[in-house]
Amino acid sequence: MTRFTFHDEHSAPQAAQPTMEQAKQAFGFVPNLVRGMANSPALAEGYLTLSGLYANTSLTPQEQQVALLAVSRYNGCDYCIAAHSMIAEMAQLSADAIQALRDDRPIDDPKLEALRVFTTKMVDKRGWLDEADTQAFLDAGFDMQQVGDVILAVGMKTLSNYFNHIARTPLDEAMNPYAWAGSAPAKQA
């Protein structure tokens, strides 16, 4: 079985050191995701760079977490579902909405549900959305900038979801209360 090293600041490749420090500054510790991605310094740097860009999109913090959880749920990534459940709670997304995302079921809030559906369709259809798919998203109160923001979310989570699948990234202690033991990826939206 292929094994990734989950580096610390002493064992990480020199090229990953700045990214490890950036993660420590941002989170107060270096998450296992970044520790594992440090095997490929470019991957670790790319992920954190995209994460920083995504935090400054036109989506609200709650909407950002809806999109990230929708992608992670579709891809069945237990690490990212735990991480973004915790972050969504910190962003004051309702517990009901978080649980709906974890369970792959509709969110009661119509605008957030439109975002969940659009994001899931974006992943499922690999970007080949029908005009009706995009129009439903726009009709819910989003705009074309937010279409792009969702594409950024999909790209960012694809990096982490796929890495976590291969590396079998263990949860960080802070995420243990948010552990997710789902099964197969979600079905089509």
Rank of each mutant, 00 (worst) to 15 (best):
F27R: 10
I151M: 13
M122Q: 10
A42V: 12
S85T: 12
Y162H: 10
A132Q: 15
K125L: 15
S51K: 10
L48S: 01
L171I: 11
F6I: 05
D104F: 11
D104A: 15
S85R: 09
Y162M: 12
H10D: 15
L59K: 00
Q145H: 13
V150H: 04
R35W: 03
T169M: 10
T19V: 12
D143F: 03
M90S: 12
Y54T: 01
A23S: 15
C80K: 03
T57N: 13
F27T: 05
L50E: 12
E173C: 03
M122R: 07
E173H: 12
R168V: 10
A136V: 07
T60H: 03
R3A: 13
R168D: 12
V117M: 07
V154N: 04
Q25F: 05
A181W: 05
L101S: 01
T19N: 06
A95M: 06
A82R: 00
G76N: 09
Y79L: 08
L48I: 06
A67R: 00
F163S: 01
V154Y: 02
A15H: 06
P185V: 04
P18K: 08
K125N: 13
C77R: 01
A12R: 03
G148P: 04
F142H: 04
P61V: 00
P31T: 05
D78W: 02
L43V: 11
